[in-house]
Simulated scan of single mutants.
Amino acid sequence: MHSRSRSRVWCGTAAVVLGGLLVTGCGGDGQVDATDAADAGKAASGAYPVSVTDCMGAKTTFDSAPKKIVTSNASSLELLLRLGAGEQVIGTGFPPGKGTLPDELDAQAQKVQVLSDTVIPKEKLLGSGADLYIDTFASMNMGGGMGDAPTDEEFKAAGIKHIYLKSTACAATSKSALTDLSGVEADITSLGQVTGTSTKAKELVAAMKSKVDAVQKAVGSTAQDARPTYFFFDFDAGTKQPMAVCNRQVANAVITLAGARNAFAECDGDYKQVGWEDVISKNPDWIQLGVRNRGSKAANEKAFDEAEAWLKSNSATKGLTAVEKDHFLRIGSEQTTIAGVENATTVETIAKALYPGKVG
């Protein structure tokens, strides 16, 4: 699901994304044009039509709230559930494992039809009866004989509007480093506009801002050179050659807001394969054991244990400062690297570990 798996990443008319408000990335640079602002105002009052723009400004217009939504994976599904739009979801790919979402969302998630355990096959997606497909990532080629993704024309012929989560889909081609969660908040706002749940979207965004603002108040004045360095260890990406999160990835914003310095913040893009010699030269103060959700707490803990044991036993990493001091954070990959409400919670969790006593 990472960017390295994508066959191509772009921010043009082929990738319509959720962003009536043009924010960080893909040519938006945080600017909001007059038309977008007007549409956002209409959506906030529950009025349609509502137009949302892609990274290049091309519009997709909704005359009413979609009734049959398919989501590409658990992250976009979770956002819809949190917004209260779960009843409109008729299917998903990459489904959440039972018990992996908070209690109040888990039962709802388990009722959603699973169209694929991975990427939804083209014909199944086009024949799903959906009127909206929400894709977390840009065009992907995951292999496995699933064929190419549907074209714009094929989506149109099937009556399916195709939109993306901007903060993730366009991260790699953002013009500047991601150091805040404004893009994620704009995705939530736009989903609220499209689905007629703007009131709930505002509540979710306000709660995120409250958490992040509290952390910033506690650690924001810490000088850059006094901030601990931080390495996101993507254990599931493989240990032979580590995968670093770069400054266009939402994880960079999460790490930065928590008062840390991403060890690979100088890397432009979202992900980059590096060597263990590069990690050793950075000698991070803290390491996050980035494990993807295994479907249960017990399975997750086992994976965290395995990641930690590998770092402690490997000759290339056992001498790292973070390893010797047991400076590990057991925080899942998804809430760190994929846009969502939990990004703000992760900011808070990291800050509490790095600044004990300062962050409540």
Rank of each mutant, 00 (worst) to 15 (best):
E123L: 03
L125Y: 06
S116L: 08
L115N: 11
L105P: 13
V112S: 00
A109N: 01
L125C: 03
G84I: 01
D106W: 14
L83N: 04
D106F: 14
L125A: 02
P102L: 01
Q88H: 12
G84S: 08
V89I: 10
E123S: 00
L83Q: 08
L81Y: 11
L83E: 06
G97F: 13
L105D: 03
Q113N: 11
A85T: 00
V119T: 14
L77P: 02
Q88E: 09
K124C: 11
T100C: 09
L77K: 09
P95R: 10
I90V: 13
L115R: 05
P95K: 07
Q108V: 11
K111A: 13
V114K: 04
D103C: 00
A109Y: 11
R82Q: 15
A109C: 02
V114M: 03
A109M: 04
I90K: 09
T92E: 06
Q108G: 13
G97N: 01
T92L: 05
E87L: 10
T100W: 13
A107V: 00
E87I: 14
Q110D: 04
Q88I: 09
G99L: 04
Q108R: 09
K98S: 11
L83D: 12
A85I: 10
V89P: 05
L83T: 04
I90A: 00
G91K: 06
T100S: 11
K122Q: 03
Q108T: 12
S116A: 11
E78C: 07
